Computed example of a mutant assay.
Amino acid sequence: MATRPVACFVAVCDLCGTSETNQGYTPHGATEQAVIDIVTEKWGDPTCGWTHTWDGRLVCNTEDDEAHTTAHEEAGKTISSCAMTVTFPR
């Protein structure tokens, strides 16, 4: 059986250290930017996913505590019990 090593980048929440989404999937990509794009836009949807803060931190959407909520809100996202929504500044 042939094998080869493969390197990838895994998203890690800077607040709680998780590497999983709320679906239990571990986001990964071939480059740092690729995995950031995957987790923050949920494959093109900026209303879902993690937050990439102005100071470069990645913040997951799996935890619902004050630190996570604050980071998302500062980026323009609001977490509610039913869904995360984004309000873009005008």
Rank of each mutant, 00 (worst) to 15 (best):
I79F: 15
D55G: 06
T21G: 03
G56L: 11
F9K: 05
T70R: 07
H52R: 09
P5G: 07
K77P: 05
N22A: 13
L58T: 04
P89K: 12
T85R: 11
V86F: 02
S80Y: 12
W50M: 02
W54A: 10
E63W: 02
G49C: 07
W43P: 02
G17F: 05
R4I: 09
D64Y: 03
F9R: 06
A34G: 12
R57H: 13
M84T: 10
M1N: 07
F88D: 07
P89G: 11
W43D: 05
A11L: 07
V35M: 03
S19G: 06
N61A: 02
D45K: 11
A67K: 12
E32C: 15
R4E: 09
I79C: 08
R57T: 13
A2W: 06
E20L: 04
L58P: 03
V39G: 01
T78I: 14
G49M: 04
V59P: 00
H68I: 02
F88L: 14
Q23F: 05
V12L: 04
D65Y: 08
D65H: 03
A67D: 05
A34W: 13
R57K: 14
A67W: 04
C60Y: 00
T3M: 10
D65L: 03
V86H: 02
C8L: 15
P46W: 10
